[in-house]
Design a protein around this nucleic acid. Structure first.
Lengths: 134, 134
DNA sequence: TTCATTTACTACCTAAAAGTAAGTTATGCA
DNA sequence: TGCATAACTTACTTTTAGGTAGTAAATGAA
């Protein structure tokens, strides 16, 4: 690891370990409030594969309702995490992709993805037991 | 990066990029269903600082209600992500800490934490605009 | 203007999440 | 047994998430 990166990593850890409260002044609470939900994270993860149409996402993200899909895309647009391009065609075509801001989430999202794969068996067992209900 | 790690990282990326659907058979949907919510992630992040009592968490995780705190801790116990130790004292003392499974979340959670710090200004602007409501 | 299709929105309803407040349990010691 | 306190639970209410179904906008060609 380059020295700069190493220093950055250490400073992150220090800033986390010295934090006494996690309130609205703590950026982690703010960011979790914005994006920590299933559909938001799933859509972002799916868009890591590249540009997708609304109908692509509807097919890929199994279980999401059309309403939740539109709603979540709208929110992510507002956040500036995704961009929307309309093609003047018949029938109309709309494509969504990650902005630079959205792409910055690739690292944490990949990290979560890798973690899920590593602990797949265990997670599935828990999921079956609880049927997804907490 | 060691060769093994590099290979693993590539295989993760391939498994993500070749995935056609994200349903219940996709482990990322399962894991998000289990832990992708604000309080769960915040408590886990706080416990990365080390062992905490119920009252410590109540003081640190600003905004969480006693009910949500107990409930979330109970769920994380069921998941095996945290452990609970009761000290037979007066008044009673209960301590929570991350299990090995819980500690495996340190990497993804740190990654999210770092991302939040990197994009702090932007995230705060969005949060103010939307007042946290999507 | 009419058309077919994708996309997006609205209204209404149900279910789940989360807050509040009160009460209960666990604990060791006096 | 009574006491004092942290931890936890339960009942009730409010708020938010989410589903369904129907409707409307956008589009270029016929």
């Amino acid at each position: 690891m380059e020295a700069e990166k190493k220093i950055k990593k250490i400073s992150y850890l220090e800033s986390l370990s010295s934090r006494t409260v996690f309130d609205e002044n703590c950026i982690i609470q703010v960011s979790f409030a914005l994006i920590a939900d299933k559909w938001t994270l799933l859509i972002l993860t799916t868009l890591m594969q590249g540009t997708k149409r609304n109908s692509d996402l509807q097919k890929q993200v199994i279980g999401i309702s059309p309403k939740m899909l539109s709603q979540t895309l709208k929110t992510l647009l507002k956040y500036g995490m995704i961009s929307r391009k309309v093609y003047p065609e018949v029938p109309p075509r709309v494509e969504y992709s990650l902005t630079e801001f959205g792409k910055s989430l690739v690292e944490p999202l990949s990290s979560f993805y890798n973690w899920s794969v590593d602990w797949e068996d265990r997670l599935r067992t828990i999921y079956k037991k609880t049927k997804g209900k907490k």
